[in-house]
Simulated assay, not measured.
Amino acid sequence: MAKYLSQRSQTGAVLLEWIISLSIGLFIIGGITGFLAASKRTTESGFHIEQMLESGRIATELIGRDLQLAGFFGEYTGNTMVRGASVDVMVADLAADDDCIIDWLGTGDEGSFPTVSGRFSALFVGTVRENNSLNGQYDCVADRSNLVMDSDVIGIKRVIGSPVAAAADIEGNRFYFAGNSVVARIFDSTNSVANWPSEAAMPGRQVWEYQHIAYYLDVSQQSGLPVLRRYHLIRNDSGVGKIAIEGNGPLVEGVERIRVLLGVDTDLVVDGIVDDYLSPDEVTPQQWSENRVLAAKLFVLVRSLTEDSSYVNNNSYELGDVTVDSGGDHYRRMLFQSVVSLRNMVIHGGSS
């Protein structure tokens, strides 16, 4: 009988040890599982943050650099752009369907090249509204059915790169701007040797690639992501110029909204100091013609490329005068902001 009780006691002790061991094991496994889940969330969050930082940095630097150099034309910077007078345009205008046309100050249509009236805008900012209207401007972009609503389109004219050394370096699909402090010439590869101004004809001239650039956002039909794209001015094989998408894909994925406010000198007497940042619609033709637009405040809102199921975004983001609500979705977002000095701007070559 005693032996039987001893065996029962031993069996109970083993069972108890087994239950305790199992409990400890389950506790450890639960801790490891929780740690791995937390580690996964941290890794996922870190990946999203890194991706947004990179996307925001690239987009802000690309747009900011071109804004800063809007209106830069080498030695000719700061002069009026009057076709047939101070500027000799030796290329044909782009067809309306191939160009980004504006009439945003109500003084006549203007495309990629200077006009005989002196109408020349080195910077254009318009907001995509309902039906992609852009207030009737920049139809080259506004006809796209997948544009991001309430985001800005930015058009910039300037020279890019480094000065071209010789006519032999002219590329067939580009346009060029030669100028000194007094006169300028726009030409392409057609008879480039003959069109290349000599030092005697244009003393101290420099020759650069001439560009008309347009930044905008749309939703990729392939990925469904909001993307930053850029149009640029090229010359095709038949010798006709056009505004075309740069490359086959987006510049930056995940850019959800861009907004630009313009820094304006609003004093009665121009003193060259920014007094207020206004939406492009609020800047008057007189302020443009008097070169009162001195700076641009750029806002870029980026989002993660994929959702984070463990995160709910109820934040609102202030892009100057525009508020973007996340609406409780699962995308992480970051807002980038920079202020750019528009040192080269001459919006009106002549009177308005």
Results as ranks from 00 to 15, higher is better:
residue 38 A to L: 14
residue 47 F to L: 10
residue 20 I to M: 15
residue 245 I to R: 15
residue 146 N to F: 03
residue 61 E to K: 09
residue 203 P to H: 06
residue 331 Y to Q: 04
residue 104 W to H: 14
residue 224 G to S: 13
residue 215 Y to W: 13
residue 116 V to T: 14
residue 66 D to Q: 10
residue 185 R to Q: 11
residue 249 G to Y: 01
residue 167 A to H: 11
residue 163 P to A: 08
residue 218 D to R: 07
residue 78 G to C: 13
residue 51 Q to S: 11
residue 247 G to D: 12
residue 49 I to Q: 07
residue 195 N to T: 12
residue 350 G to Q: 04
residue 341 S to H: 14
residue 87 V to E: 03
residue 242 K to W: 04
residue 87 V to I: 13
residue 49 I to L: 08
residue 209 E to L: 09
residue 193 V to F: 02
residue 326 S to G: 12
residue 198 S to W: 02
residue 72 F to E: 05
residue 127 T to A: 03
residue 105 L to A: 03
residue 211 Q to D: 11
residue 19 I to L: 15
residue 23 S to L: 10
residue 42 T to A: 13
residue 128 V to C: 09
residue 151 S to A: 12
residue 260 V to R: 09
residue 104 W to P: 02
residue 8 R to S: 12
residue 321 D to E: 07
residue 123 L to E: 00
residue 168 A to F: 05
residue 187 F to V: 15
residue 227 V to M: 04
residue 330 H to Q: 09
residue 93 D to K: 08
residue 42 T to I: 03
residue 103 D to R: 09
residue 153 V to P: 06
residue 212 H to G: 05
residue 167 A to P: 14
residue 59 A to P: 01
residue 69 L to F: 13
residue 330 H to P: 02
residue 273 I to S: 10
residue 345 M to T: 04
residue 218 D to K: 10
residue 346 V to L: 11
residue 82 V to H: 00
residue 122 A to G: 05
residue 4 Y to P: 04
residue 190 T to Y: 06
residue 242 K to V: 14
residue 251 L to C: 04
residue 196 W to S: 12
residue 342 L to P: 05
residue 217 L to F: 10
residue 93 D to P: 09
residue 269 V to S: 14
residue 40 K to A: 13
residue 10 Q to K: 08
residue 144 R to W: 00
residue 140 C to T: 00
residue 169 D to M: 00
residue 144 R to E: 00
residue 201 A to H: 00
residue 239 G to W: 06
residue 186 I to C: 00
residue 286 Q to C: 01
residue 147 L to G: 07
residue 118 G to T: 05
residue 98 D to P: 09
residue 191 N to H: 05
residue 313 N to Q: 02
residue 314 N to E: 13
residue 145 S to Y: 01
residue 238 S to L: 07
residue 277 Y to S: 13
residue 161 G to C: 07
residue 168 A to E: 14
residue 144 R to F: 01
residue 142 A to M: 03
residue 209 E to G: 03
residue 314 N to K: 00
residue 73 F to E: 02
residue 240 V to K: 05
residue 15 L to Y: 06
residue 58 I to G: 03
residue 35 F to A: 05
residue 344 N to Q: 05
residue 255 V to C: 08
residue 327 G to H: 04
residue 23 S to T: 14
residue 179 G to V: 15
residue 284 T to V: 07
residue 188 D to H: 02
residue 7 Q to N: 11
residue 351 S to P: 06
residue 238 S to I: 10
residue 265 D to Y: 11
residue 314 N to M: 07
residue 312 V to H: 03
residue 84 G to P: 05
residue 139 D to E: 02
residue 136 G to I: 04
residue 331 Y to P: 01
residue 179 G to L: 14
residue 307 E to V: 11
residue 300 V to T: 12
residue 6 S to K: 03
residue 254 G to H: 07
residue 155 G to W: 03
